[in-house]
Design a protein around this nucleic acid. Sequence first.
DNA 1: TCTGAATGAGAGCAGTGCTCTCCTACTTGG
DNA 2: CCAAGTAGGAGAGCACTGCTCTCATTCAGA
Lengths: 260, 260
Amino acid sequence: MRAVLSYLGSALVSGRLLSMGVIQGAKERARAEVAGAIKDQARMQLAAEGAARLSLRAVARELGMVSSALYRYFPSRDDLLTALIVDAYDAIGEAAESAFVKAGAADPLHAWGGVCRAVRGWALAHPHEYALIYGSPVPGYAAPQDTVAPASRVALVLLAVAEAAHEAGALTEPDLPAADCDSVVAEEIRQLLEQPDRTLPAAVAPRLAAAWAQLFGLISFEVFGQFNQVIDDRDTLFEKTVVALAHQVGLRSTGSGAGT
Amino acid sequence: MRAVLSYLGSALVSGRLLSMGVIQGAKERARAEVAGAIKDQARMQLAAEGAARLSLRAVARELGMVSSALYRYFPSRDDLLTALIVDAYDAIGEAAESAFVKAGAADPLHAWGGVCRAVRGWALAHPHEYALIYGSPVPGYAAPQDTVAPASRVALVLLAVAEAAHEAGALTEPDLPAADCDSVVAEEIRQLLEQPDRTLPAAVAPRLAAAWAQLFGLISFEVFGQFNQVIDDRDTLFEKTVVALAHQVGLRSTGSGAGT
DNA sequence: TCTGAATGAGAGCAGTGCTCTCCTACTTGG
DNA sequence: CCAAGTAGGAGAGCACTGCTCTCATTCAGA
């Protein structure tokens, strides 16, 4: 459980707590409140119509102000979208984190399933916000640095699940040499895994990344309607696939080092 | 190889040949030519700027005509986008089909890998067109009936690979009862699999659908930049994951009914 | 109390999708 | 071979968009 706290701790500090500062003066508070109202209204339009139909003027109109006033808070439409993207990443990341905390690290397969279910649940409940972050990147929009930390929260939770499993002896080691994996994984991740309090073998990182992408592939097909007229019982398909992904990563039930 | 021909045949007839009619009169030909030029120009703008920045007026301007003239060919921007979507589905489907034909049905694992590689290759070469069909659905845009046949071509190829493997005795049967799978898969797919010349056990359909979604999840993460600063050697990761997916589907090397 | 910054209002610009009317050119029926 | 009908293009115009600029107001701190 140490890994849990450390991973989640770093995620929380880097992505969440620092963004909401201490209580400020009345003026700054009013400003933050208006900015929040703008974001809320924008989020409503996003949920109703999708990102491309999100209109600054409509948001301003709904809020009873004129469109130019909105530019005092967000310098452009892209910046407003970025704020919504960060919020969405934080929301789905928080769903994953709290699911992990709730499931506990005792049974890795149970934790893995809980996290995956939470992510899928959030995606199905917020399809347009999900599309905003995991669909096609917005045109001419390069993800600014503010989004990378929140964007990695779900992946860090999956990493924490694997590390907890490894510490409990419920993670099958990969058979391929670690040197092969080092060239696959990027420098940033290697540094993360080499930190002194990390215990996860670097060799599982590629499998984890693949499972991460595959998980979101499954969710995206469901959210984006690719399973229409193909798969009816998506719950069952998801559950079975999540178990397969856990096995692919190397997760086993606690106690039995090598299951079926 | 019978399965190959029959599957690909139905795909070709339904999706491709019917759309390009016989040689017509000069007038209709001129009309088709202009429509083609519009689509080409639109595709160029799509590749350069993305779907959301595709502008009818800009297309018309580039073609030296006025925007209203363009409405003689496409009744709305959405219809032009739909035409591009159909073309993109056909292109990626054709890439998959020809990869399958080239690989042959002798070695199922080889065929599976070839098809997956071809799909990934097309996606990386045409990221914006890929985003158009596998990214977030365009806002307020419900896929018209014209797109469902082309959209299913890649999936049909994967189905054909599995059926060829089954006929060669290189497909591991699922352990769960077929009744369970029947409720997962939609009516349309069940009817497809129950056709007299189909030999694929219905029980592998769910595994195939899951692998299908996971494959595109992996590709989407790569195309949409989710692997930036996470995975460097994406080729290796893809190859390894494709093998894992093949195993998940139940594909084995020819001759050995159940290998590791 | 005065100054300067923050905030909002309004006009305006260039661009968009789309519709309407008008005019030309061409195909086709007699 | 000619008249009629139609397909296609041109242009104006409408409502909307993101964004910028200027001008007035308000309000906090020196």
